[in-house]
Design a binder for these strands. Structure first.
Lengths: 366, 366
DNA sequence: CTGAAAGCGCTTACAG
DNA sequence: CTGAAAGCGCTTACAG
């Protein structure tokens, strides 16, 4: 039979209240009494029931994480960033994938309304945003991670996408590219607008041009990027620099350029966006605007947990800088502001793309 | 103030027990009473407290998922497969990353001992295996997902890695390659042994040879695969077919071969293992042995939930078939000899046998 | 420094 | 078909 606090109290000859005090590290317990209780707990292998603690305390020490899908290239980084903060803080991480659509969101809502979590960390909530805002108004701590440039009316963490666009432009200019082309993502994703604005912004007053004819929309996929470049080529448009608002589209662009016999980066320099793992394995490896997924996840988690602990927390969005990861799809250039060390990019920053995860760390007695 | 079952009971003029009966869909409630109670619940927006339900029922309807790290290329697929089964079943998914080492495992153990979860799904538990076995002995439902060929003394789900090795060999033979080379992963990972056995197995009696000199070990990374091929080339060893026990190493191999001016697949055909997203973005795109990550996750989740529901569940490992995904790193070949026969034969002996036909080229999204 | 008692919000025999 | 009561295993004022 499971050992309860009552058992420990009886064996130690004290009340449950005193055992509870020891359990919660309250200072007002006699040293000898505490030692005796701790000994009994160790002997019996007593572990408090989290179910009972939760009910009595009125909270669960669990945060809900809502993500539209787990099947995104940056999700492992982001999620690990979240877990690395949430778990050491003593909180559990209850994962909800909204991939199932309506029913999945209803389960999430039920979980929240049933107080299964103390707070919510939502990644790109999309249509669930209104619901989250209601919850937030009702006092539930909520933090949003925005990976698509959607400014949420809630505490949020995002990246400076416009600045990312600027960095891409800067690099292409530094490489001497003057006739530029751009592949945007789906129009619904605000990232594109921000990226495009930043890109165009930096171009003004330089000799470089990005004509409307050279801007084409794709669906965010590799195939979409491939098709987009084919459209540009078929229209006989000339360009020596290309910025794609996503690494997948950039990878497709590389494929189309290669098939067309265009040298990369010699004839066309290509810059992607995101720096997800596959970007490092294209040929040539993709130069891209790095978004700090893991840091963003960690910051959102920290912000949420601070709120759970009653610390204020700013309502201003926490915006992360992007940076350039220069690989082979752009020619070597001199130093550019915000550029990450090239050598580091090739070694330390190469994403750990391993097919196995055998634990190597020493494991304590459990 | 939060609405409780007592509030609903009072408003409906019945006892808490009757409200509880309606809540749990018990049939023995008067129709009119039930309707009245349901109306009140809707009006008040009543949602049962999961904390209280958990304590009263003695379970949490939550499964713990333990993964050594979330930062693996196949993790999104696997996790989505798990979530797609767990969530619609009405269970929550409490995610534990063991990435923090000892402390992380201790938190996991505390969570389990505190009965925060009804069962555990462990991905490649490694050193935590002993602890899981103890828990299983003590009656906790546990299912292991094995992605590295580590046969666990617990209910488990894995893939037929030896058969994957056979498929790779078969394809290289069909492409007419007779002088083969192999890059194995870290020796601690049993996958390698199984793959290698299957590979060698199929080669016996054919004209193809895999000499010990042509087998080299790498660390599972892209750079490791690159270095491995450089070693082979520097030793002036000839090979026209290469099998790497991981897509990352295969990607590195492609890079090294390209740098050395060897045509792929013309001079060297390359087959990887895993079919993780980056495999589709190498140039040429990587032919690889597909491991059904998502299905494996789903099967493990289903098995765990069946056990939680008291259904027996076999203790035999549930072994999934691998399949070939043929892309550009191997030359086009006709039907692969013996494939259909072998598959039919295996159907009979494997417990839960699912396979995708020779896959065409699914390009994962970044 | 410690204990008795109430309370967290449900479920579940047991009676009727 | 329904209710009163005990119980799940803790925490937390309130007294002393």
């Amino acid at each position: 039979m499971r050992v309860t606090i009552a058992d420990v109290a009886r064996l130690a000859g004290v009340s449950k209240a005193t055992v509870s005090r020891v359990l919660n590290g309250r200072p007002d317990v006699d040293g000898a009494t505490q030692a005796r209780i701790e000994e009994i707990m160790a002997e019996t292998g007593y572990v408090p029931s989290s179910r009972a603690v939760d009910l009595a305390r009125g909270r669960t020490r669990t945060v809900g994480v809502l993500a539209p899908t787990l099947r995104t290239a940056w999700m492992p980084e982001l999620l690990q960033g979240v877990a690395d903060v949430v778990e050491p803080s003593g909180y559990g991480l209850l994962l909800h994938s909204a991939a199932g659509g309506g029913p999945a969101l209803e389960r999430f809502a039920a979980s929240v309304r049933g107080h299964a979590v103390d707070g919510v960390l939502a990644v790109d909530p999309g249509a669930a945003l209104d619901h989250l805002r209601d919850l937030h108004r009702q006092g539930l701590p909520v933090v949003v991670v925005d990976t698509v440039g959607a400014r949420a009316p809630l505490p949020s963490v995002g990246a400076d996408y416009a600045d990312g666009g600027r960095r891409a432009a800067e690099l292409l200019l530094a490489a001497g590219r003057l006739r530029l082309a751009m592949i945007t993502g789906p129009a619904e994703e605000p990232t594109g607008a921000a990226c495009a604005d930043g890109f165009a912004d930096l171009l003004t007053g330089t000799g470089a041009v990005l004509r409307a004819s050279h801007v084409t929309e794709a669906d965010g996929t590799e195939q979409g990027g491939y098709d987009a470049v084919q459209r540009l080529l078929r229209a006989r448009l000339f360009f020596d620099g290309l910025f794609a608002h996503g690494d997948a589209m950039a990878a497709g662009a590389l494929r189309a350029l290669q098939e067309a016999g265009r040298q990369v980066p010699g004839e066309v320099a290509v810059v992607g966006f995101g720096d997800v793992p596959p970007a490092a394995y294209t040929v040539p490896a993709l130069t891209t605007v790095r978004v700090p997924w893991e840091e963003m996840g960690g910051a959102a988690a920290r912000s949420l947990i601070d709120r759970l602990r009653g610390e204020p927390g700013s309502d201003e969005p926490e915006v992360f800088e992007t940076s350039l990861v220069i690989r082979g799809s752009t020619p070597p250039v001199g130093r550019i502001p915000g550029q990450r060390n090239r050598r580091a990019a090739r070694t330390a920053e190469l994403p750990a793309f391993r097919t196995s995860a055998l634990a190597t760390e020493p494991v304590p007695e459990l």
